[in-house]
């Protein structure tokens, strides 16, 4: 499975990373280099093998369904590029 220029453009859009048109080819080359190296995984017999989800088997801990945090609006906003009246200011989302 090798990627072409169009695939890189599509993947870059999905990843929300702007990639200049004149870099698409070289990026496709780089990605293909890595992907062709990864292809060797096809040699492994994984028939009937469960996908690994956690290295050490354990059950998820439970806790009471109560509020444990909050009331820290100013801390949450402290690093925002732009705020106003206790809100994040973002580019127009709905036309």
């Amino acid at each position: 499975m090798s990627v072409d220029k169009n695939t890189v453009r599509k993947v870059a859009r999905l990843a929300r990373i702007a990639v200049a048109e004149d870099r698409l080819d070289s990026m496709a080359g780089e990605l293909n280099g890595i992907l062709s190296w990864i292809e060797q995984l096809n040699e492994v017999d994984v028939e009937g093998v469960e996908a690994m989800t956690t290295p050490v088997a354990m059950s998820l801990p439970m806790r009471k369904d109560v509020v444990t945090d909050g009331g820290i609006r100013d801390k949450v906003l402290a690093n925002a590029p732009k705020t106003e009246d206790g809100f994040f200011v973002v580019p127009k989302v709905v036309e």
């Binding site: 993947v11 990605l31 996908a51």
Partner: peptide
Amino acid sequence: LLIGTYVLSAGYYDAYYLRAQKV
């Protein structure tokens, strides 16, 4: 990030991510 997005994208998840987790 591009590699990661590609291997998780529709149609490739089983061939890449799922297989890798089985390996």
